[in-house]
Design a protein around this nucleic acid. Structure first.
Lengths: 216, 216
DNA sequence: ATAGCTTCCGAACACTTGTTTTGTCAAGTA
DNA sequence: TACTTGACAAAACAAGTGTTCGGAAGCTAT
């Protein structure tokens, strides 16, 4: 049996509910619908809401006020197909990076991260940085890209990290290598030289786990 | 004057409201909060909600039932900080690509696109493809990346496009050049040779406008 | 036409829900 | 001490809100 279509009235009610929720963030009451759609009785609204629920267009939370919600608009979606991480600044070879723990996460600009790139449930401790410069061009990271980093203080050889050089008070995006007692920070750009320094002078601020690039 | 912090109780209430809305799609009532958080009186809830609203953590719709909404969770966000495009398949040098117009867009897998990469209002006619192979490695596109393409049938010299070779019935990701009467499709990989063919044999299926990469 | 169905109407009902009022109590503060 | 303020408690109040129910109107099929 094919799914029945919505009647004219049901279509209008559905549209009304969707825009009401989009604009105000809460469900309309039955009397809201009745009034704004010039329906003669609340019982008519009730009746058609029942139909809409059977059609799967809306979900009703039994007998409670303003209990209409729309599955396709569910805030649950907000944590399903993507997540959001704070954009903590720009990373350039040589310029200092705001400490992720000191930034007010509430007021930081947010970057949406598709679930295909990093699943939302693995987004804890992840932040984004804008890339300035081409020091990682051979690692397919270009000026203007956004890199996603997971905060961690250690790294394996070969991992791409944001590393802080304490003495120089600089933060840079490099590949990390531990070599008999010292650290090598290797740019992915054939024209640039690696940095050698002592383990004490290096503080890892996160590891790159994703890249986003706009070519518009 | 620095913004005050939430008290312990307010923190709990806020968390409760957020998860309630996420799970059920509607706001909790004051008595829901009172009961589930073991608060002695509705007036206490009311009092603290007032504080939360002053802090900007929640929005209250005056005097109506279940009128609490959370700005950060607003369904309006669903069309603000990102958009979604269909994932139409995989592009490999040599394998055919499903025609974007023939695919059922409703049931195609969706990819979330951050507003930073492509603004949602410019997402019309945009689709995503998974990249197979390393023919564009010098253009910073690697195996496994997602590329975002805007559907268009013409291209300027140097633009990166998905091009269909009609005779060969193959689709490939290349840089496009028009050279005195013929077309050159240039891979961005020093080890690979360009393809030369006639304009009649080339059908452009879209231009690359973004790249998403996961390094997890 | 008649039965059966869907859709609608109007009003009344009962529960849900936000608000208000009156106090209490502890921590500051002059 | 006396006064203010923040946070809480208990109960009562007044709307807001979903539901129900008898009946009417329109429609379809027999």
């Amino acid at each position: 049996m094919p799914r029945r279509e919505m009647s004219d009235r049901q279509e209008k009610m559905y549209q009304y509910i969707v825009s009401f929720i989009k604009e105000r963030g809460i469900s309309p009451s039955i009397r809201d619908i009745q009034r704004d759609l010039d329906i003669s009785s609340t019982s008519v609204v009730s009746y058609n809401l029942e139909v809409l629920e059977k059609l799967g267009k809306i979900v009703r939370n039994d007998k409670i006020s303003r209990g209409i919600s729309i599955p396709d608009l569910s805030p649950a979606l907000l944590s399903q197909n993507f997540g959001r991480v704070p954009l903590l600044g720009t990373i350039t070879a040589g310029s200092p990076l705001p400490d992720p723990e000191e930034v007010n996460l509430d007021q930081a600009e947010q970057v949406t991260v598709p679930a295909n790139i990093v699943p939302p449930n693995r987004l804890n401790g992840v932040y984004a940085l804008r890339v300035r410069g081409q020091s990682m061009i051979d690692a397919l990271i270009d000026d203007g890209d956004y890199v996603l980093l997971r905060f961690q203080e250690t790294a394996e050889n070969g991992q791409m990290v944001a590393a802080r050089l304490i003495d120089e008070n600089a933060v840079t995006l490099k590949k990390f290598y531990r070599e008999n007692g010292r650290i090598r920070l290797q740019p992915a750009n054939a024209t640039m030289q690696p940095i050698y320094t002592s383990p004490e002078n290096v503080q890892i601020q996160g590891r790159v786990i994703g890249v986003l690039r706009s070519l518009l």
